[in-house]
Amino acid sequence: MNKRDMILRTRFPERACHWVMVICFFLAALSGLSWFFPTLSGLGAVLGTPQMARILHPFLGVAVFLALVYLFIRFVKYNLPEREDLAWFANVKDVLLGNHDKPLQIGKYNAGQKILFWGIMSLISVLLLSGLVIWRPYFALAFPIPLIRLGLFLHAAAGIALILLILGHAYLAFWVKGSISGMVTGYVSRAWAKSHHDRWYRQISSKPAKGEGSE
């Protein structure tokens, strides 16, 4: 397909940030799982020895947080709740079955993606705060032990919840063909945009053609 028929959906800095974050998250999540499910302790090997994994895990987590701060600033305006989101919820069954007959007035992100956005942003905040409380040798010494216990509990719970959300995110990107190439190249086809994000497609089509979708 020629680039004229394609729409720029995600710019280079956002794409680069996304994929760097994917790598950091992958390493932090696997090492985290190695401690949560000790039977899977071999997963920590993605960061070398268990000792090295323990040292690197929090730094990778902070990298994910910083990447998400950037993506939050870039994407928050497309992820605010709108009246049109109700149509998506009302037709969630058709959405999951892949039926695109009805136009659902979907903006740049659909209601499910918005939930994912806010879920990720709140869970990473819990992970950052609880992670600081339990981070040795730098910060944990400053906190009382009962607070560290709470931190450990919340960090594990939020970590598991975030990994589950990201599994869902990755699956849906794999399921909706064109999404992953969209995040790799930045471009999606007009048909893709029209089918999955009809309102966003109308908005960018009505603007004078600049060859760009976002902004």
Binding site: M1, L96, L97, G98, H100, L167, G168, Y171, F174, W175, V176, K177, G178, S189, A191, W192, K194, S195, H196
Partner: peptide, 17 residues
């Protein structure tokens, strides 16, 4: 995710629509 993909199939857009 497994049963969804096998059951519903890939979500593809007809590029010539």
């Amino acid at each position: 995710t497994l049963f969804h993909y096998v059951g519903v199939g890939p979500n593809q857009v007809d590029e010539h629509a």
